[in-house]
């Protein structure tokens, strides 16, 4: 039998509340959830046979559900699926050895939740729209009158230049959307990680950490941004445990 760790909770003086909640919950494979505490941190764990911890979708979702359920009531650090140690003593030892690191992370995510925003586009349609929207064709490059009078090499450069300018316009458009999005989450002093142009269709992939109370305003703001950019598709998800904002190297 091994011990599976689900999350580390910033328990403070709410141990009784956690105990009450754990009674109503089950771990993977219906096992009991157990609290291992040290100071202000409590690890939520369950026993598991290593052979039973199959890395499949059902188990991964169930594992995430347990963490999510706890996250709705407590500030926590989610553990990676498959975080197994041999004994309960090892869990206690881990809490002791890494206590300051855990506390530092827990303070940073206290009362905050993670949201994700993905912005998609149809790149060809968007490029075409941007080209049409240009104040004049000359902004991209008008070579229609000159192609007959210049060399094949100059025509080649013009063609490449057109594509380059369109690409630049697309990048600048995405920069504009990202700047507005950053301004929106800036009002919550959010921590964020934003990737741009992940693929030609997924133009923004962002995760950010804001106060729990900000959810309603956030949804309204993103819907406003969507209305402003109808050619883009916004998918906002959350609230999630702070999966992308935990930085602990276990000693």
């Amino acid at each position: 039998m091994a011990i599976l760790i689900y999350s580390l909770i910033f328990i403070k003086d709410r141990q009784a509340q956690l105990n009450d909640q754990l009674i109503t919950m089950n771990g993977l494979n219906g096992t009991n959830l157990v609290a291992i505490s040290l100071g202000e941190i409590t690890a939520v764990v369950s026993e598991i046979k290593k052979i039973e911890l199959v890395a499949n979708q059902a188990n991964a979702i169930r594992f995430a559900e347990i963490i999510d359920q706890l996250d709705q009531q407590f500030t926590l650090l989610p553990m990676r699926f498959g975080s197994i140690v041999d004994t309960l003593d090892t869990v206690s030892q881990m809490l002791k050895t890494n206590y300051q690191g855990f506390i530092k992370n827990l303070v940073e995510v206290e009362n905050k939740v993670e949201f994700g925003l993905k912005i998609y586009c149809d790149p060809e349609k968007l490029k075409e729209e941007l080209r049409l929207k240009s104040e004049s064709e000359s902004e991209i490059l008008d070579d229609s009158n000159t192609e007959h009078s210049v060399s094949v090499y100059r025509v080649y450069v013009n063609k490449k230049l057109k594509a380059h300018r369109l690409e630049q316009k697309l990048l600048s458009y995405i920069e504009g959307v990202t700047a507005e999005f950053s301004e929106i989450i800036g009002q919550w002093d959010a921590k964020s990680k934003i990737k741009k142009m992940v693929t030609s269709a997924k133009v923004v992939d962002a995760v950010f950490l804001i106060n729990r109370a900000g959810k309603v305003d956030l949804v309204r703001s993103i819907e406003g941004l969507q209305a402003k950019y109808p050619r883009l598709s916004f998918v906002l998800t959350g609230p999630w445990p702070p999966y992308n904002f935990v930085d602990v190297t276990l000693k």
Partner: peptide
């Protein structure tokens, strides 16, 4: 897990 984690998905794509 909360039933619906998708808070906003109003795009055209």
């Amino acid at each position: 897990m909360e039933n619906n984690k998708i808070l906003c998905n109003t795009g055209t794509v």
